[in-house]
């Protein structure tokens, strides 16, 4: 098994793929979270009735396979609109919206977990809406939302394996390319899987720890 044709160059190639996976994930989670917080707060603020159109639109991102979202977005931008835009940008854009759709729900859940009475008390003390949000809601909602958010970020990292469809060479795609050339699927897939596992497992454990530590009992 260790008699392999894998060279140092190939390892560099894999590392580049891994770097791409992390880069796409970082960008998408960053923008997705900002958008998600925005959507989540708006959704909470205007109430479920008025937010129906937004909820419906965000729901679409969670009801359609990511692969199809990527293909559709790519086809729409490059052939329908006729814009010249890289696959990388499409991937980041779609993944950001995908992240935002899930993040909005997490944020809303977090805000809803803060007791109404506590917030009324804050407002009665003369705090403005902004102060109430930053000093009362934010710290309390974070305790509820952060473990789920960590889960979401890891989910996005795993889902970023799908961006190969818009010609972004990330970890799994580069593994695939090497498999085609070296014909050693098992060994290469082990390396690829190990990489995902080594990043995901400790962070997932940390999320689980936070959840246990921060739960209200």
């Amino acid at each position: 098994m260790f008699d392999t044709a894998l060279t140092a160059n190939d390892l560099v190639f894999l590392a580049k793929g891994a770097g791409m996976t992390l880069l796409v994930t970082a960008i998408s989670v960053f923008f997705g979270t900002i958008l998600g917080i925005l959507f989540g707060v708006i959704r909470y603020q205007i109430g479920p009735w008025w937010a129906t159109p937004m909820t419906l639109v965000l729901d679409v991102f969670r009801s359609i396979p990511l692969l199809i979202q990527l293909v559709l977005a790519n086809a729409f931008i490059t052939t329908v609109l006729g814009l010249r835009i890289s696959g990388f940008a499409v991937a980041c854009g779609v993944l950001s919206l995908y992240t935002a759709a899930y993040c909005a729900e997490i944020v809303r859940g977090g805000i809803e977990s803060v007791p109404q009475t506590l917030r009324r008390a804050a407002r009665s003390l003369g705090m403005t809406w902004g102060q109430d949000m930053t000093y009362v809601v934010l710290p309390l909602a974070t305790r509820v939302a952060l473990p789920s958010w960590i889960g979401l970020a890891l989910g996005v990292m795993k889902d970023s394996a799908l961006v190969y469809i818009v010609q972004v060479v990330e970890l799994l795609k580069s593994t695939q390319i090497l498999i085609t050339r070296l014909q050693e699927p098992l060994f290469l897939l082990m390396i690829c899987g190990l990489f995902y596992f080594l990043i995901s497992f400790p962070i997932a454990r940390f999320g689980g720890y936070l959840e246990k530590r921060w739960s209200n009992d």
Binding site: L154, K158, A161, L172, I179, L189, C192, G193, Y196
Partner: peptide, 16 residues
Amino acid sequence: ARNTPALFQIYMVHFG
């Protein structure tokens, strides 16, 4: 199952 992409798992079953 929880810490690797589903795509990887399917790939593993087929090619692994």
